[in-house]
Design a protein around this nucleic acid. Structure first.
Lengths: 282, 282
DNA sequence: ACAGCTTACGTGTAACGTAAAGATA
DNA sequence: TATCTTTACGTTACACGTAAGCTGT
């Protein structure tokens, strides 16, 4: 089974139309048709049901579509990681969410730089879909939150578990409370995180923390955030605990099977710093 | 990047010798050499250092070797899963260790068969490397133990956490104790699990539970096992708790991204049965 | 009759094998 | 000099495109 065949099949399976798939691939239909036939012959399985004017996936085709994506993702990640390892200039690329480091990052970076063999750390700030950068081989590690991120395919190290607080303007109807629960938020606009499933949050789409706090100050919405956000709160905002919001765990994630000693040292350092901070900080 | 290129590179990287790699691949050296050169050109990275009589991996080559294995494993698993989905005869293949089901399996199977859309369950018994069957696409789910198995690349559902007991002949010097600790076992031969790293266990290699208990009865060794093993103990053997042995968690594991409804129902059923059992059984 | 997948056929690229050359210890 | 990788060259296989054929709607 060749990568080319999987690319072809994926295109046809997604388009459910040989002509459009061929156009997308920059080729003509006949060789595409033959390639799929050959794949079916080699697998000994029908992948597509061709009706006169309707193409549909068989059960096996649906399985192969999912599996193909895994294989193709792995292949492009492999190429990217190899290229990154080959071009000199070794760095550790860490992807973070601005304001989403629980206040730990400065201490971690300082401690890591004293490690023997420490690499320069390149910080990449990104709001949405940060875990994808890891799976694509574009980054070495990421600071993520459980349960907000999908951690399949990643190894993780827990750093810090935090309760969540409601952030709102001082003039908000709930600002005087010492605690709230999720039911109190019914009808409040909540931020829409880019890339998140189109869930119930109906507020504006958010791209960075400054924007978020600004919109909260403007009474456009309120936000439920990890309590460490308090360190970065503007004077015109207040935060009160949300009793029944699930605690959030800040964690360090990296691709499975990663073996780089520099990454291992970084993980160790981060765990040590987080452990120390938790021990006397809470 | 094509699968063929990765196969070639993997062979050379493992042999560190173009001639042997070519022989292993059933081809001659020159096209192999060219294929590697082309791969290096396309990636823009040197993968191998050719000294007159010595071939070595560059750093990038080491990265690609690891990544290649991931890609190739994913590709062959994709083919196998697709074939399994294509050949009619849908079944749920569950791999277990004889005696390693914590006594839950009969109840799980009974409950599952009452589910709508339940598939026939095929049980595969295997002692070593059970998780590999999942990664290779040969099985749909497996009963494994944490921390004994490597769970990377798998999703899991915890079923049952058990303390561990020392199993020995009634005549053993420790048989009268009500509890032991790991230090008491210094010098005792312990079973060698097939596929496990060549660790400190210096006893005979074990392939099934009957053999293990037989060898224990013959005073060839003792074994530390989950306490549910007591249900299956022969009369001439005794089990006492090991105070400082890490508790073992029996769990159900399946490949990441699995989407089969039959598997989902099986997971739900297993979790429900385990929860019920734990609730009144301890 | 038309849209769309497939078969037929001719062409070019590329992968392979044999043979010869270059490089290193 | 011996061993091992690379370059050179001729052949074969395979993937692609154009054109014609077939099939449901």
């Amino acid at each position: 089974m060749e990568v080319r065949e999987l690319v072809y099949f994926t295109a046809v399976a997604e388009e459910l139309h040989f002509g459009r798939a061929a156009a997308r691939l920059g080729m003509t239909q006949p060789p595409l048709s033959r390639a799929i036939q050959q794949l079916e012959r080699r697998l000994g399985v029908a992948l597509l049901e061709r009706g006169g004017r309707r193409v549909a996936l068989t059960e096996a085709g649906a399985v192969l579509l999912r599996e193909s994506r895994t294989v193709l993702d792995a292949a492009s990640a492999a190429a990217r990681r190899t290229r990154r390892a080959g071009r000199g200039d070794p760095r550790l690329v860490l992807v973070i969410k601005p304001g989403g480091d629980g206040g730990l990052l400065p201490a971690i970076l300082d401690a890591y730089q004293t490690e023997p063999g420490a690499l320069p750390v390149e910080l990449v700030c990104s709001f949405g879909e940060r875990e994808i950068l890891l799976r694509e081989g574009r980054a070495d590690a990421a600071l993520l939150h459980r349960p907000h991120h999908d951690l399949t395919g990643l190894d993780t190290q827990d750093l810090l578990t935090e309760t969540q607080v409601l952030v709102m303007p001082s003039s908000h109807r709930l600002a005087g409370r010492t605690r709230v629960c999720l039911n109190d938020l019914a009808g409040e606009p909540l931020p829409r995180w880019p890339g998140a499933s189109e869930g119930r949050s109906h507020g504006p789409e958010i791209h960075d923390l400054g924007q978020l706090l600004h919109l909260v100050a403007l009474r456009r919405m309120v936000a439920v955030l990890p309590s460490s956000i308090r360190d970065q709160l503007r004077d015109d905002l207040v935060a009160v605990p949300v009793d029944d919001a699930e605690p959030t765990t800040l964690l360090l994630a990296w691709p499975e099977h990663a073996t780089s000693p520099a990454l291992a040292a970084f993980i160790r350092t981060a765990a040590a710093v987080a452990g120390k901070t938790t021990a006397h900080g809470g």
